[in-house]
Design a binder for these strands. Sequence first.
DNA 1: CCAGAACTAGGACAATTGTCCCAATTCAGA
DNA 2: TCTGAATTGGGACAATTGTCCTAGTTCTGG
Lengths: 198, 198
Amino acid sequence: MAVETRDRIIEAADLLFYQHGFEATSFADIAASVGISRGNFYHHFKTKDDILDGVINRRLANTEQMLDRWEIAGSDPAERVRSFIHILIVNGEKIRKFGCPVGTLSSELAKLNHAAKSDATALFTLFRSWLCRQFERLGFGDRSDELAMHILGRSQGVATLANAFDDDRFLHHEVDLMCTWLDDQIAELSTENHSVRE
Amino acid sequence: MAVETRDRIIEAADLLFYQHGFEATSFADIAASVGISRGNFYHHFKTKDDILDGVINRRLANTEQMLDRWEIAGSDPAERVRSFIHILIVNGEKIRKFGCPVGTLSSELAKLNHAAKSDATALFTLFRSWLCRQFERLGFGDRSDELAMHILGRSQGVATLANAFDDDRFLHHEVDLMCTWLDDQIAELSTENHSVRE
DNA sequence: CCAGAACTAGGACAATTGTCCCAATTCAGA
DNA sequence: TCTGAATTGGGACAATTGTCCTAGTTCTGG
């Protein structure tokens, strides 16, 4: 069936774009990975940019689904933010090899001046607004987006260095620091509220 | 003279690799930028990888020089670390457009499985050990490398997000946070020392 | 069962890639 | 000034790129 092949192409392209980058991945590479002929591509995707769109949309959908799952998982917002932080460990091996899929794609598209750069940024925005929502529920009000960006940035930096140095210990240590930071923020917030009430 | 041309090639390649990435920059691009013929390249650089080596060595030399300048600038180690943090602001415009030169190159070479990846990591190591030295002088002992990696990671994350969102306010805010973090670390350290003495 | 749509394989196409050669020019040293 | 090395420009080269076409095959709805 058509949809199956299309999905298989996107799935293979997703992986290859992540592992080797968008520019460095050719039609031939994807075709070989899927096991279909190069020419067959044109029927499913008119241009390479179309495949990129497909890949980004797939990532957007998968990410949204993951965040939704965490949201309905019942645990408190702080626990959800911890889930986000722990992606670094869950995907630790891949991150050490290829970096963060979101950050590296965004960087590459920025350099290529690619039209889909804003779509890649939308992936970041998905995490950003989700994190922001969690902080709002924790009572951080206007500071929520700031905190969301902070933790998003921290994980990006950890991914970049863990990749550069292939360092698992660093990754774990920084995850601990981020969790501590989260606890501190929550603790500080509650003392603030106390002093406001008094 | 030969050296002049060679340097002009490396300088142009350095800029293009930073702005558009290594893979996306062709011989023709560099030649056009320098204003010499494509064929003339072969006399100076046998392969594209040779140019990359030249660029990385140039960056290594420039970085070392910059760090040395900061080191002899007389101010205390904390001030030096602040100098490092403020690169994010000094180079803010470029970073928002193209990301961190060190981090993005390192990521790209990791994905390309390129032989020069370790050389790119050496650029990180330059900053890492320099920062480590400053923390040691501040009295952080065994924790110095940890702190160096922490601040290195923070700035990487800030660069990635400032680039993705083209956000100058975020960049400035995070720089402030990093400086505050540094002050806190130093303050905590001095109270620790006090309690040890008592 | 059959017409038309969906799909596939294979290759053509011009453009670009990194690499390389060669003839012309410039330069340095005797 | 003369010689040989260093440098340069203008391509040639095969390989690969993204794009596109065409002729077959498979599938589906009536």
